[in-house]
Computed example of a mutant assay.
Amino acid sequence: MGLSFRGEFNQKVDSKGRMSIPADFRRVLESGDPNHPENPNPRMVVLYGPHLKNKLEAYTIEAMAEIEAEIKAMPRGSKKRQMVSRMILGKSWETEIDRDGRIVLPKERRAQIGLDGEAVMVAMGEHFEIWNAATYDELETAEIEAFLEEMPDDFDPMSLLDDTGGE
């Protein structure tokens, strides 16, 4: 298993959609790109489907290859494979981090998540999310508060690691 994404980073997005990728995230992207270091600019895959609502998801090349292999293992011609292919493969694009450590988010992708000015990148282990900073602050606070209300006062998030029952 390769490196994992960790942390939360706020970054400015300029009028052309350029956004710096944090150095910690670049190291993970480099380790997950089979063409690196021959190609010094690591690549990544960004998902933008309608199922993502307020965010984009960014994956290493290797992580996306694993997802593609899982899709290819599904029965050909099945409705599930068709939908997963459209929502993941059809709604993704590969981009390269430039020598200054930036990517360019196309105008359509910025519009999808209302990204104007400041983005937040949130580590999710095998991938990271890209949000409009204000939307993330609002939704994440509400989501965590609602979740914690259902938990006992002495709740420890580490206790969920033993829970194999899914969500």
Rank of each mutant, 00 (worst) to 15 (best):
D33V: 02
E126K: 11
G90Q: 03
Q82P: 09
P42K: 02
R6G: 07
P50E: 07
W93S: 09
N41I: 08
A146W: 00
F25C: 11
K91R: 11
Q82I: 09
R43P: 06
L161H: 09
R102V: 15
S78C: 08
E94Q: 08
S85M: 11
Q11W: 07
E8W: 10
V46I: 14
N10L: 05
N132F: 06
D33A: 04
A123P: 04
K12S: 14
G49A: 03
N39V: 13
E126G: 15
Q112T: 13
A142E: 12
M124I: 05
I61A: 04
D116Q: 06
R86L: 05
P75H: 05
E140T: 01
N41M: 10
R110P: 14
V120W: 01
G166V: 02
P40A: 05
L148A: 00
E118C: 04
A123Q: 07
D154W: 00
W131I: 06
D163F: 07
W131N: 05
P106I: 09
G117H: 05
A142H: 12
L139K: 12
R109N: 13
E57M: 06
G49W: 01
D14E: 15
N10A: 12
Y136D: 02
W93A: 05
R102Y: 14
M44N: 05
I113P: 01
E167F: 00
S92Y: 03
E8R: 14
S92T: 02
I144K: 00
V13S: 12
S31D: 10
D100V: 09
D153G: 00
L161W: 13
G165S: 15
K55F: 04
G114N: 10
I61V: 09
M121Q: 14
T95N: 11
L161N: 12
R81Y: 07
G77I: 02
I71Q: 11
N41S: 12
V28A: 13
W131G: 06
I130Q: 08
D33N: 06
V84P: 07
E94A: 08
